[in-house]
Amino acid sequence: MKIRRLAVWGLLAVMLMVGGVRGVPAAAAPADGAATNALNDEYADTGPTIVDPLEGFNRAMFTFNDRLYFWVLKPAAQGYSLAVPEPARIGIRNFFHNLLAPVRIVNCLLQGRIGDGGEEFCRLLLNSTVGCGGLMDPASYDGMAGYDEDFDQTLGVHGLGQGAYIVWPVFGPCSARGTVGLAGDMALSPLTWVFWNDYETGMAVKAGQTINETSLVIGDYEDLIRAVIDPYVAVRDAYVQRRQTLVEQ
């Protein structure tokens, strides 16, 4: 059983690697390197862009995720938020954020940011103890806001382009590099250990986390859809811009 699982993970990893490497040359286009927030580059015709050879598939997956949100996730999150008051939901979100500290610490270190990694480590210590196991976030009040580093950013910092755009069912907007990044983050996530030992508990915890997160951002996606003329292109561009800036920071 273990061997079969390993084989599946191995195969997945290989697929992702190939995807990641194949995506690189296209992403090396000069537009990719443009500073997103520079003040005097507005006349350039394009901002950071991404190649999208899988647009047909991606649009289908985008529609799938859209339906998943409106038909399943949103009703579930609305029901849940009637039962659980907002402060509790914020606490649960803090808890999961604290739990994922290893991902941020390791990626700070992989980017050579020893001090930032140290700050994340201090956050983990403080929030796990004084912050009641991570439910509260006293570290932020102490001026330690933390650094949301992940493996996708680490790869970007070391010069890897985003590669092709890809929309995964359930996971949403991603790139070839981002897919490898997700795999790397999963390897460092304590939740993966729960999955490894007990698949059903893992699924339940993950579903709970997702519904909790969603309950706190209901309306954001609706607003975005309301504001735009092509949701697919708008989300793709927002993803690229955001990842680009996060890598540059």
Binding site: T36, G47, V228, I229, T245
Partner: peptide
């Protein structure tokens, strides 16, 4: 003339939509 929400520039976002359209 531009608003940047969570690292996403409104102008750039609309430009990509308008271009594609």
């Amino acid at each position: 003339y531009d608003v940047i929400i969570e690292e996403v520039s409104l102008v750039r976002n609309y430009r990509s939509q308008f271009n594609s359209f």
